[in-house]
Design a binder for these strands. Structure first.
Lengths: 124, 124
DNA sequence: ATGAAATATCATAATATCCTGTTATATGTC
DNA sequence: GACATATAACAGGATATTATGATATTTCAT
């Protein structure tokens, strides 16, 4: 996609509206728990139960995050009998993660030191 | 970058630490104001004054967001006489934005309806 | 040098928002 | 009915963003 196309998507006086949706979407990546889930799914589909066990969090909490990820198009689900498999189907999500990984690697120390952004620490 | 490399960056028992940095970095995209700035810079370098005028926000507020973006590697600066130009130099940032744009386009209605994520509305 | 312009930085308080924990209940499947 | 998952509501706490104001820095003009 070209830069021109990028901008045309939200031109004129309503940049705000589009940016709100973007910001909303990007905030899906901006949570440690959801990131752990996404990265856990990089290796392949997982059942909800597996994810719950992996994270060691309440089923409710995990399920809510999964719903969040599903609604925004990060993941995809497939019913397998009683269980539901979650998977990363969209290559673009993987690609975004890869690019972000690379940028983070180049700026890790700076990011860590940035006082303006601070992802919430896991509760104790 | 391969999936294996992606995961190896934060393996073992401390996935949390890496995910915190990632989340922090991604939250840079998760703010409407910063997104407006980034997208404004898609067309080329801009002076701080231009950005301030474009956004119609206080110089202090804009400058703080710019500092945030600069620290985390989103943008780059170059002094031109009295003014300072901000620009998007990293292609990966552009690419992330393009990919996100595409995904958002495919899920706009869902994202807008998602009650679990809600980028802050602009203050009135 | 002196002063004005452009930008950066800092501090504080207030608001808004997210995440979490918890509990309960509603699905769908065996 | 038992299992796996989804959805919902609600309070509490942590945190980001904002607004505001003041001040420091760099550069340019006189």
């Amino acid at each position: 996609m070209s830069t021109a196309k990028l901008r045309s998507a939200a031109e004129g006086a309503r940049d705000d509206v589009a940016d709100l949706v973007y910001a909303k979407f990007m905030s899906g990546f901006a949570d440690p728990t959801r990131l752990r889930i996404i990265r856990y799914l990089l290796d392949g589909p997982r059942a909800v139960g597996e994810i719950v066990a992996y994270l060691g969090m309440s089923q409710s909490r995990v399920s809510n995050h999964l719903a969040c990820l599903r609604w925004c198009g990060y993941v995809d689900t497939e019913r397998r009998g009683r269980t539901v498999l979650y998977r990363l189907t969209d290559r673009r999500i993987r690609k975004i993660l890869e690019l972000a990984t690379a940028v983070v690697a180049d700026n890790a120390s700076h990011i860590a030191a940035c006082t303006r952004l601070s992802a919430a620490a896991e509760p104790s």
